[in-house]
Design a protein around this nucleic acid. Structure first.
Lengths: 150, 150
DNA sequence: TCCTTTTTTAGAATAGTTCTTGATCTAAAC
DNA sequence: GTTTAGATCAAGAACTATTCTAAAAAAGGA
């Protein structure tokens, strides 16, 4: 019945060199399940508590930080609002709709390079890039083009 | 000796429809004088206090908010660090150097459009765009390419 | 098992910012 | 010049998201 012993322990699978504890698993699952909602730490906490009532807010912060550090999720900051978290690891921008308060992921155009439009000085090495836009999404009832017409 | 009466009062020049009080003037001047340093509200406060010892931190925050709202300056947020303020009204990105802790303005390539690399859904209207990069600037002793070599 | 290290928890602490209140200033009307 | 209404300012309290602290619990290795 026992499977071959691996470099990874029974209770905690490996996740990019990270020990995947129960709490980290719950936080990560919440994040992938909440999908495109880009929840804040508090929102993650509420959902995580449904699955593991003993989990604390500090642990959610810890896990989010650890997962971010390990590159398993991304932290999204828009202005000075509470950080949001995002399981989409592809390079993408964030669009915050001021009409419906949703955050959307925006992908790159085919073959485009986000840094290419910027006139970076020689010798300058970009390690990270955050692109956030604000506007009206035009997707929801609140924001649809029709609602603006007579 | 009196100049022609204008729509603008003596004590407070017009500034984009904004009443330019002494405090707002000081805050604005500090910001343009500190030029490319992208000071935080507290840093603005320190410099403003040298010019007007009675000014309060709350007033500096008020003025920065008002000036930002009026479009006279820009607020720059990088991750969750304290907001910085910037008198450069041209479209530009910010480069935060993790080697020397400086923030640099990065202009657009000639004729480039920052949004063009992003695959925005139809009907989506971008009203504002914030681009922040992290990395090594390569300009200062700390960050120069030579310092990495033997 | 025992020991060491890592993680979790709960609550206190912190930093940046915003809010509240009363005082002061400004512009315009009188 | 006075008065008046509204805008702005100052000081400090309050707030919020986040981080820190210390002790308990869990995990992994010997």
């Amino acid at each position: 019945m026992m499977t071959q012993k691996s470099t990874v322990s029974k209770a905690t699978e490996d996740f990019g060199g990270l020990r995947m504890t129960k709490q980290r698993r719950v936080v990560y699952d919440v994040l992938t399940d909440l999908g495109p909602q880009h929840p804040t730490a508090s929102e993650v906490f509420v959902s995580a508590k449904e699955r593991m009532p003993s989990i604390s807010l500090a642990t959610v912060y810890n896990c989010l930080e650890t997962l971010t550090g390990a590159g398993a999720i991304k932290q999204v900051n828009i202005d000075r609002e509470a950080s949001r978290f995002c399981p989409n690891l592809q390079p993408h921008a964030h669009f915050y709709c001021t009409g419906c308060n949703n955050v959307f992921d925006i992908g790159l155009e085919n073959g485009a390079d986000a840094a290419s439009v910027w006139s970076l000085p020689d010798g300058c090495r970009v390690e990270e890039m955050h692109v956030a836009m604000r506007g009206i999404c035009g997707r929801c009832p609140n924001c649809s083009p029709e609602s603006g017409k007579s």
